[in-house]
């Protein structure tokens, strides 16, 4: 794209500098008061939060049980394309789902009428019952376009709270490598009509998290 002339930049910055030049330093002693109670028992907390925010959370022992749970789940989903993050873990899990028509993220974006998106997660957040996904998890549309989003995860991915999850993201350089990261908490929703909660506003109506206690 051609570079657009932007002389306003210098003028705005100059005004900001003039306006803040005499601002006294606001450095105050760090505030150590805890804001949230610490999370104990992350898995239990995660499940409780999921129940509260309408995420379906299924906990199993092993990765292969997780694959079978996925197959069960997909059995209840209407005919049509399943969009899946192209990764060995997801391929292994989906191998148990037999003959479903699968579109892999390596083949492009999910189609408008794909029936479910199957992805991994960057992290899970116990404190809020959230799933953190990035564009590495099958792109932007995988967790968004299909009416059902299914996440495959294991308990080692549980961050106790949001600060810990953000720390994980920083450590893994996720924001450097990916053009987008999203903290997802429950299925898409709206309350714009008389404050009545309706699920599935624009994004998925169902969010399912399949967690195995063993990591694979």
């Amino acid at each position: 794209m051609a570079q657009v002339e932007n002389p306003a930049r210098e003028r705005i910055l100059a005004r900001i500098r003039a306006a803040t030049r005499s601002v006294p330093s606001s450095r105050t002693a760090p505030d150590a008061r805890p804001i949230f109670a610490p999370v104990s028992g992350p898995l239990e907390r995660f499940r409780a939060e999921c129940a509260a925010n309408a995420t379906e959370c299924i906990v199993v022992e092993t990765a292969s049980e997780r694959g079978r749970a996925l197959a069960d789940l997909l059995g209840g989903i209407p005919e049509g394309e399943i969009f899946a993050q192209d990764s060995p873990k997801v391929r292994r899990a989906l191998a148990l789902s037999g003959t479903r028509q699968i579109r892999w993220s390596s083949e492009g974006a999910p189609s408008e009428n794909s029936q479910a998106g199957v992805t991994l997660a960057e992290a899970l957040v116990a404190q809020t019952g959230s799933v953190v996904v990035s564009t590495a998890c099958g792109g932007r549309g995988a967790s968004l376009v299909p009416p059902v989003h299914i996440v495959l995860a294991d308990t080692s991915q549980l961050a106790p709270d949001l600060p810990a999850a953000m720390e994980t993201i920083r450590r893994n350089g996720t924001l450097m490598a990916c053009s987008s990261v999203c903290v997802i908490t429950g299925p898409s929703r709206t309350a714009d009509i008389e404050k009545i909660l309706v699920l599935g506003a624009h994004g998925p109506r169902r969010l399912v998290v399949l967690i195995s206690r063993e990591s694979d």
């Binding site: 990916c178 053009s179 999203c182 994004g203």
Partner: peptide, 20 residues
């Protein structure tokens, strides 16, 4: 407790991403 989608966008799609 937290809004449903909190999204961070750092740029256009990268070469390895399927969409965006």
């Amino acid at each position: 407790a937290i809004t449903c989608y909190n999204t961070l966008v750092t740029g256009p799609r990268t070469a390895s991403e399927p969409d965006g």
